[in-house]
């Protein structure tokens, strides 16, 4: 079988996504989970760029979508880490199992 560059791009993105998924699922540190989620977001962005490069889209819309996605990822990281810090202030830990109660 012959591998198209697009195949390689999509496989790369799938592999990155699954690496992030494995990281999120196997650890219970909140910051580590955030890192894994960022990696998964990046993998999704890769797909947009790959389809733009090899697909039929002539307009730069996929690129703009990735730009927005990067901006939202930055917002997500900021809020997520603020939550981690606020949580740490209450419980002196940043591990997720400690966050099973809603009452502070």
């Amino acid at each position: 079988m012959n591998l198209d560059p697009l195949h390689l791009c999509l496989l790369l993105s799938a592999a990155l996504f699954c690496a992030g998924l494995a990281g999120v699922l196997s650890r219970s540190g909140a910051i580590f989970a955030l890192l894994g989620i960022e990696l998964m977001l990046n993998a999704a962005n890769l797909n947009f760029a790959a389809f733009w490069r090899h697909g039929q889209a002539a307009a730069p819309d996929p690129i703009l979508f990735v730009l927005f996605s990067i901006a939202v990822a930055a917002a997500e990281a900021a809020v997520g880490l603020a939550l981690v810090i606020a949580f740490y202030r209450h419980r002196r830990t940043s591990r997720l199992p400690a966050a099973s109660r809603l009452k502070g």
Binding site: M1, H7, L10, L11, A14, A15, F17, C18, A19, L21, A22, G23, V24, L25, S26
Partner: peptide, 19 residues
């Protein structure tokens, strides 16, 4: 192990779809 299995399975499905 279960995390690895889940993500490995996800990758297998995705790779199959891509190929």
């Amino acid at each position: 192990c279960s995390a690895l299995a889940v993500s490995g399975g996800a990758f297998a499905v995705l790779a199959w779809a891509v190929l």
